[in-house]
Design a protein around this nucleic acid. Structure first.
Lengths: 143, 143
DNA sequence: CAGTATCCCTGTTGATACTG
DNA sequence: CAGTATCAACAGGGATACTG
């Protein structure tokens, strides 16, 4: 048997006590939730209620404010506006306003915003795996 | 040029209006933040302040309550206890209490908990990509 | 050592109503 | 149509102190 108290389970790329798969550089060695840590940056990007659903809509193509409200009817205008404002500040989306009346604005993902797609896919994959593992808590096959 | 108003950018696996890379099954077609959606499940697993740092520690191997406090000194006992309790309820970690005094408990990831590792790696990768893209907002190379 | 119990403060969310 | 303003309700997190 291997010693299991310290050097951890199945990591081969350990350097200086850190698993370099998990913590590739010093920004991941923090002992505090630093906003500069890449993990925190990514979580902040997709964080907040409704954000992933909103991103899903925008991944399907540019959408207007009204289209987004129609796609997510229970999302209030206030929260939608807040999410869009923050995503725009983070440069994950861009908005184009058509001048005139009634006003019309189209939101679309930036190149940076598109980089979130693999993360959303991984979130789905992981959540699916967790649901399978915990629903299969005891039994392994049917019956 | 391709039409860019509706069928979205670069998705080839579109079915019934959904991008099947992003929304592989009906659980992802929700118009509301359902707790049963895999994406919500995964976000709930890693969500909450300190959680990813705590998971990082546990990915490096089993740890006691005190070891976790030492590794994350600014994390209060209350929040640490809350996180551990929730992770245990979600069956992402297990705890073993040594009977006797002073008491001693060791926490370790379950198989389900280990499945979060690829997600944490993807979060790091994505956050790193976002930091590169936004810091390179205008210039492409050093002057 | 390993937690739990309080208290408080702040940020987030949602409902409703109003404006350009 | 596309938002903003205001307010009420709630949950999350931290400081401190206490217990088995």
């Amino acid at each position: 048997m291997v010693s299991q108290t310290e050097p951890a389970a199945g990591n081969q790329t350990v350097s200086n006590g850190w698993d370099r798969d998990l913590v590739p550089d010093t920004r991941g060695e923090t002992r505090h939730p630093e906003p500069t840590c890449p993990v925190e940056v990514a979580l902040a990007a997709v964080g907040g209620r409704w954000t992933t659903l909103l991103l899903r809509e925008l991944m399907h193509g540019p959408r207007s404010f009204g289209q987004l409200r129609a796609a997510l009817p229970a999302l209030s205008a206030k929260v939608l506006s807040e999410r869009l404002t923050r995503l725009a500040l983070d440069e994950l989306i861009e908005c184009r306003r058509q001048k005139g009346f009634p006003s019309h604005t189209v939101y679309r993902l930036t190149a940076a915003g598109q980089t979130l797609k693999p993360l959303l896919i991984e979130l789905y994959r992981t959540g699916d795996a967790l649901l399978r593992e915990t629903s299969a808590h005891c039994g392994r096959s049917g019956t």
